[in-house]
């Protein structure tokens, strides 16, 4: 059974001067017990989709169902089944950690004690600071508290909108460990992230851009589907190198990727030797054929979209 079904949803925001299409005819199915990642850059429409699923935003067209409840008609049932963690930290900064948790437990008609086992792993990490005001917590701690609050009523489905944005790498890693644990307890998790490296941690991912879904698949399948050759190229003069690579006859795309450039060309059109020959005027040149990452696939898809 599908935990979440999104059927042809569109949402536009209108202002006097312009109309922004946040979601453009999106359909998605998320299975029960899945850890599903919504991957896309800022402004892709991820938060709008989350807010529609959380029943706080109405779609213009289309419908969505959560555990067979319609997000518009049966929103009351849904609110008891989901735990929603908005992208922005939205707990009471002037209440302590414990008071926040207690408050949200009560609002959701439960108590901390009743569901303590579910949150104990996470809450133990922030329990030493339970008398500290939420506003005084570090970024990672805040997210753990927010997750605890979203979990306190034992939801069947977790909607986590960019939970790791602005969180340090260690806390990010810890956070994903927690998500895996929650998944093993049978909770369906829909998580969004702008970080491509987190895509591999999901069971399935959807790549989203400009309100459209580019692809939905297992992370490894998305990589496997990549039917082009990809090279990592670096030299002393990176700027000149980028220009040279973009002017190369077989180049499909070339982007700066950390300390090297990723060059995408049609399969078997060139190899390392040919490239070294072409780039002979560069010093300290290194050319290496590499396996594509999700990010490479995403960039390529964007390229072909345009």
């Amino acid at each position: 059974m599908n935990a979440i079904e999104i059927i042809n949803i569109s949402k536009t925001y209108k202002s006097k001067t312009k109309t922004i299409t946040a979601l453009n005819n999106i359909s998605l199915e998320i299975k029960e017990g899945e850890l599903f990642g919504l991957i896309g850059p800022d402004g892709a429409g991820k938060s709008s989709l989350f807010r529609i699923l959380a029943t706080v935003l109405l779609p213009d067209v289309g419908s969505a169902k959560i555990l067979n409840y319609d997000v518009i008609k049966n929103f009351k049932n849904i609110r008891k089944l989901i735990g929603y963690m908005p992208g922005r930290f939205s707990l009471y900064q002037d209440l302590s950690v414990e008071e926040n948790l207690k408050f949200f437990a009560t609002i959701f008609e439960t108590t901390i004690e009743e569901n303590y086992d579910l949150i104990s792993d996470i809450y133990k990490q922030i329990e030493p600071f339970k008398n500290r005001r939420a506003g005084k917590l570090s970024g990672g701690m805040k997210q753990k508290l927010a997750l605890s609050c979203a979990l306190i009523h034992k939801p069947k489905i977790l909607l986590l909108d960019e939970p790791t944005t602005g969180v340090d790498p260690v806390s990010r890693k810890e956070f994903w460990e927690i998500l895996k644990k929650l998944k093993s307890q049978g909770i369906t998790i829909l998580v969004s992230t702008p970080y491509m490296d987190e895509a591999n941690l999901c069971d399935r991912i959807a790549l989203i851009q400009n309100g459209k879904i580019l692809d939905v698949d297992l992370p490894e399948n998305i990589v496997n589907k990549f039917d082009k050759d990809i090279f990592s190229v670096a030299s002393d003069n990176m700027f000149l190198l980028l220009n040279d690579l973009r002017n190369y006859s077989h180049t499909l795309s070339c982007f700066a990727f950390g300390d090297s450039h990723h060059l995408v060309i049609e399969r078997n059109k060139a190899d390392e030797n040919l490239l070294i020959q072409y780039l002979s005027r560069h010093k300290n040149l290194s050319v290496k054929k590499i396996e594509p990452t999700i990010e490479d696939c995403f960039m390529q898809m964007l390229q072909s979209e345009n």
Partner: peptide, 12 residues
């Protein structure tokens, strides 16, 4: 503060 969003998704 966005806290109203949390209250809005609750059965409150």
């Amino acid at each position: 503060d966005g806290t109203i969003e949390q209250l809005n998704v609750s059965p409150l």
